[in-house]
Design a protein around this nucleic acid. Structure first.
Lengths: 166, 166
DNA sequence: TATAACATGTAACAAGTTACATGATTTC
DNA sequence: GAAATCATGTAACTTGTTACATGTTATA
């Protein structure tokens, strides 16, 4: 649902082909939001079936053809509907990574500290990645800002936990 | 992977049957971690096949039988392995709910504010739920604490965003 | 006596990923 | 001339959920 919204929202500003949409999302938003190529193509197919988008074929020489999608009035209506629905909604985050923390006591303090320091490194790297992702696309800025904030909190919290271990 | 760890970790302290495991997770951790009954039964089947757990049938009168699972030495080894792996790892959170925020400008400030206030209510309710979930099970306390912290940040951040809208 | 809780399970579906396949063009 | 990038797509697989099916016992 949110992914359809994302594609529609991008197509609203200009017509684009699948590869291009995927690149745009991957490079500007890749740390915060995933959307793999097959998923993108698949969603575009579905949205075509529903009449939300249309495409025209574009070919340059012998290159593989591009299917350039544009949003239809029907699609604009869907965008408006989805936008309102998604904005008013909030899907709770799943805290799966936390499960292992419930069993910390099964390990020695030293080993626990060592393993958690690896986890910390991953979060630190993610934070750096997000910081470099800060981009020209002002629409995406909110998402990136939120993600940064989240990761900073994660780091802070993990460090508190590690301090308690000692 | 984390779910197997969760089940193994619980079975480590005492033998339990599927329904019981699901109830324990649902009632003490339901806001932070989901694990539906069919998923639980399915995981227990798989872990039986792998020799991580064994079960004995227990029957009271004409009631449906219970299959009470215990962890095996093989399962304890798997627990130790999974625990180390999961602790040192960190799966980045997906920020799907944020996608709609990228298109806020498509709406009037009034409508945006109204929709975001609905979102805020959902987060507030989740926070209350998490706060009531604070439980006797001290193992789960870390997870709940983390979730609370996360939701407080979410609320704060959303309110800042709403303030900026004005 | 109806409904909720106890107890397990199957089958269909949903959403998305990975791996594979194809083929042209640009870059090193 | 090899590798990366451009461009699309299919098929299999993964992970988990929902809906359905079954039957007992406690509770209102």
């Amino acid at each position: 649902m949110e992914r359809e919204l994302l594609l529609l929202g991008l197509l609203r500003t200009q017509a684009m082909y699948g590869y291009q949409l995927n690149e745009m999302i991957d490079s500007h938003l890749g740390t915060s939001i995933q959307l793999k190529k097959p998923t993108a193509y698949n969603l575009l197919d579905k949205m075509t079936d529903e009449g939300w988008v249309t495409y025209r074929e574009e070919q340059e020489g012998n290159r593989p053809p591009r299917y350039v999608y544009s949003i239809t009035p029907h699609g604009e209506a869907a965008f408006q509907r989805l936008l309102r629905k998604c904005l008013a909604d909030y899907k709770p985050t799943e805290f799966r990574s936390d499960i292992s923390l419930a069993f910390l006591e099964a390990l020695s303090r030293e080993e626990a500290a060592f393993l958690l320091s690896k986890r910390r490194t991953i979060i630190q790297n993610l934070l750096e990645q997000v910081n470099t992702e800060a981009t020209q696309n002002s629409n995406f800025q909110v998402i990136i800002e939120h993600h940064r904030r989240h990761l900073e909190m994660e780091l802070e919290w993990l460090e508190e936990l590690m301090a308690k271990l000692k």
